[in-house]
Design a protein around this nucleic acid. Structure first.
Lengths: 194, 194
DNA sequence: CGAAAATTTGACATGACTCAACTGGAGTGG
DNA sequence: CCACTCCAGTTGAGTCATGTCAAATTTTCG
């Protein structure tokens, strides 16, 4: 059950995992499941868990004053689940995270992360790399939003994360791109005839 | 000359700095100056240095196919200078960084960072915190772009970083907000009469 | 003072949004 | 297995926020 996580950690650090490390990881990361539409986190809650997705698909989004959802992150297998800001700072989250496909994930508490996982060098190294990757990806996505048209953002998404299009319906993709489903529909029909 | 940096590091880690640490920091961070309009980094170059701003103001931006600048970051005293993606990955940057006010900064090479600074626990701790902060700030700004109007983004900027308005002209603020200077001008004249 | 930069204003264009209607599955239950 | 509902996706018409372009005005600063 923990194989994909172990493999992931090995891929994201140079330091080897000892057998003991693997034991600690297996004990602290606990398998949980959520079905479609269930919440991993709701707005206003503190994100007490962080998790690695073994199988499934989830979305993280804010809801504006008009009740419109704005998706800021989509996650599938081998990605992480949780609101970093709320988790790190122990502040109420402004986001919701819910499950789009029935999802299996390996969950850790913040206490276990601090007291046990951070004793493992490979974990620290991996977290560091993830933070870097996240910072880089966020900067890129921000730049895309500031300087690219909706159409260019869409074609970039198709090239960068083609999996998303197979896993999420278009109205979710549209929200992720920061546009309405109607606009996305029109962009797509234009692209076909070009 | 290094006081503000030393103070900054102390504020961003729980671990104490030893006298030896301070010596290493003073030797590896070298004071440089750039005058208004000069480049710290140009598109296509690898960002070989990372720097801490002692005094001054800089901007980081991409340039689109129409020659329009899109500002993704503004930095002033006690902020960091450099393109993280290019620096970490040693890849050519897609951004330019130039100086808006004559700027004094303390610069380190990547080699020194790896070989010397990373031996200092407080530096590692600080870097970790900076990555976290950066990831959180990026996420927030992304969410603002996806879900807020230009006007709301502007008022949020006024509240969050009022210094920016005193240091940068409005066409730069507009670009940072992802709008044109004309639109920002109209938003401001509306806000006054409200 | 004079030139360059910053800001504002007006007229017009356009990309994206809103709202509403419609189509076409995919599931569900009687 | 049909009728029904739900959800995804598309389309059209009208509107609105923001962009574009050009020019005027104000500010900054050597």
């Amino acid at each position: 059950m923990h194989e994909s996580l172990i493999k992931y950690i090995k891929n994201h650090s140079k330091t080897q995992l000892t057998e003991h490390d693997v034991e600690v990881i297996k004990k602290t990361f606990i398998l949980k499941k959520l079905r479609k539409r269930q919440f991993f986190l709701q707005e206003g809650e503190v994100c007490k868990f962080y998790a690695f997705i073994v199988k499934g698909a989830t979305r993280q989004y804010s809801v504006d004053e008009n009740g419109v959802e704005h998706i800021i992150r989509l996650s599938i297998e081998n990605w992480w689940l949780g609101d970093r800001e709320s988790h790190i700072r122990s502040t109420p989250s402004v986001y919701n995270i819910d499950v789009w496909e029935d999802t299996d994930f390996l969950q850790v508490t913040k206490a276990d992360t601090l007291s046990q996982l951070h004793l493992i060098p490979a974990i620290n190294e991996m977290e560091r790399i993830l933070d870097e990757n996240y910072a880089i990806a966020s900067q890129k996505r921000l730049n895309a939003h500031i300087s690219w048209s909706a159409e260019k953002r869409y074609t970039d998404l198709v090239n960068t994360y083609p999996q998303f299009l197979q896993r999420f319906p278009l109205h979710i993709i549209a929200s992720y791109l920061g546009i309405t489903k109607e606009t996305l529909s029109r962009i797509r029909s234009n692209a076909v005839t070009k």
